[in-house]
Design a protein around this nucleic acid. Structure first.
Length: 483
RNA sequence: GGCCUGAUGGCGGAGCGGUUACGCAGCGGAUUGCAAAUCCGUGUAGCCCGGUUCGACUCCGGGUCAGGCCUCCA
């Protein structure tokens, strides 16, 4: 089944057809680097990382161009820098570095492009000028404002019309706006704020223009897929469309919005213990903290355990279950690796490799159905169970085991999980602990050989105190840290 | 007020007009010095009211409830 994507704008699942299969373009709104990312911020990069993996598999790694911007101009950044008394660049560099490090722990592949707003000011100024020249924006009191009345399709993405919004408006309107929903493209900076020269005076870009300008500059319009969180659909993405379309004089074109992006994908919100994350409730969970206390794959698995458009509740149960799911898969992998210790992969022939490849189909089918990651996970268990059956079958052909193991790893790679060795997963990656545990296991092996069960159990208790579970097997004991 | 989602077994969570989702947990058993892992077996669903249909968890209408956006939050 070819890839289908639920398009927010058309509100239906559509067959994905790139504009150019040799150059598939994907843009996702990235972080504003003024603080550590919270767990909700991690959902889009993980979800769209899976999409990027899928696209690369289908169109070729070098045919996909994935851009995720870094917003390094923002009032919150200015406030943070002012409060700390440091230059703005110090704040943005610090949090961008933390963001990238945390993303790496989640096994998120770096996007092909990570444009920074500060590197694209000329492109932004050019696009604003083009919008003015098209008659869709006006300068007023040092600001440049987009004139929503000049773009008839305004509201197509979020399903609103201007009349309804005016009726429901409860925000005070700036006096220089012609229409309450006109929004800022460029705004003047105070002396202590970052500023760049422009035809309208020293200032800085508004919130929405950065994305449309960087998209045009780096990917070219229209792009294939634009992604982000649902909350960005309005006003951010709505405004991006208006800017991108109008900068190209397409304000009155039929299906004008198609001149900006061909498919829109929005991930659902994340709650914490069934409540919205908010600073007033005090339940904001920082990704940076989470990845200190648990493997990144657990976080990643949890984020992928629900369909991306569904809401996801972040809670202890979800994390425990994610951990257990991964334990199960890594357990099969560990046993398979033991069975394949002396196996030479070169003995697999073409036909066998093709069979192993075909085994991925159920997983691909799920992902191609609007990125159904829970479905893909179910199929991953199918592959793991098939591998387990082979391992339990004394008669099984070792080549079949190797093929099944390959399929499982490959499928997991599409989701970006099972990237560690089973030992690294179970042993937790702490060399000091590993040395201590192995010393104790040697003593215990001696005690067991002498059938000194009380001593063996005393050692098990000591290991237990180290948060370690011992598993006695026919070839000696293996161990794992408890979840 | 406007717009938009969703409601599935003890829990998480999918697909599907008729056939086991999947995982976790539970229960019974096998195996095990103990334990873990593994294996076998097993129970539990589809918010409410109508309609369409031979047949609906799945389609349609109405209701109830929950959540989101309309405030430079992913």
């Amino acid at each position: 089944m070819p890839l289908h994507i639920h398009d927010t704008l058309r509100r239906e699942k559509r067959l994905f057809e790139p504009r150019d299969p040799n150059r598939v373009t994907l843009y996702v709104c990235g972080p504003t680097v003024y603080d550590y990312a919270h767990i909700g911020n991690a959902r889009p990069p993980v979800v769209f990382d899976v999409l990027a993996r899928l696209l690369r598999r289908q169109y070729g790694a070098d045919k996909v161009l994935y851009a995720r911007n870094v917003t390094d101009v923002d009032d919150k950044i200015n406030q943070k820098a002012a409060r700390e008394g440091v230059p703005i660049g110090e704040v943005t560099a610090r949090y961008e570095a933390a963001y990238l490090a945390d993303m790496a722990l989640l096994n998120v592949s770096p996007p092909d492009l990570a444009p920074h707003v500060t590197d694209y000011i000329p492109a932004i100024v050019d696009q604003i000028q083009a919008i003015i020249d098209a008659g869709c924006a006006y300068a007023a009191e040092g600001h440049v404002l987009f004139d929503v009345s000049a773009y008839p399709s305004y509201g197509a993405l979020s399903g609103r019309n201007l009349d309804d919004m005016i009726a429901g408006a409860r925000v005070e309107v700036a006096p220089y706006k012609k229409n309450p929903h006109d929004f800022v493209l460029w705004k003047p900076s105070k002396p202590d704020e970052p500023a760049w020269p422009s035809p309208w005076g020293e200032g800085r870009p508004g919130w929405h223009i950065e994305c449309s300008a960087m998209i045009e500059q780096t990917l070219g319009l229209p792009i294939d897929i634009h992604g982000g969180g649902v909350d960005l659909a309005f006003p951010h993405h709505e405004n991006e469309i208006a800017q991108g379309v109008c900068a190209h004089g397409c304000a009155h074109a039929e299906n004008a919005h198609d001149h900006y992006a061909r498919y829109w994908m929005h991930n659902g919100f994340l709650t914490v213990d069934a409540e919205k994350m908010s600073k007033s409730i005090g339940n904001v969970l920082l990704l940076h903290d989470l990845v200190q206390s648990m493997p990144g794959e657990v976080v990643r698995w949890a984020l992928l355990s629900a369909h991306y458009r569904q809401p996801l509740d972040w809670n202890q149960g979800l994390l425990e279950q994610s951990r257990k799911n991964l334990d199960r898969l890594y357990g099969v992998l560990r046993d398979a690796d033991a069975a394949l210790a002396d196996f030479d992969p070169a003995t697999l022939d073409e036909a066998e490799l093709e069979l192993a490849e075909n085994a991925l189909d159920p997983v691909l089918d799920a992902l191609e159905d609007d990125l159904n990651t829970p479905g893909a996970i179910a199929q991953l268990f199918g592959l793991a169970n098939a591998l387990r059956d082979l391992l339990n079958d004394g008669e099984a052909d070792i080549n079949d085991v190797a093929m099944a193991r390959w399929s499982l790893k490959e499928a997991a790679g599409l989701l970006g999980v099972l990237s560690l060795t089973p030992d690294a997963w179970f042993e937790g990656g702490d060399p000091a602990l590993k040395a201590e545990v192995e010393a104790l296991l040697e003593q215990r092996a001696a005690a067991r050989a002498a059938k000194d069960w009380p001593e063996a159990d005393r050692i098990r208790d000591r290991l237990n105190a180290l948060n370690v579970v011992v598993m006695d097997g026919p070839d000696g004991a293996t161990w794992r840290v408890k979840g």
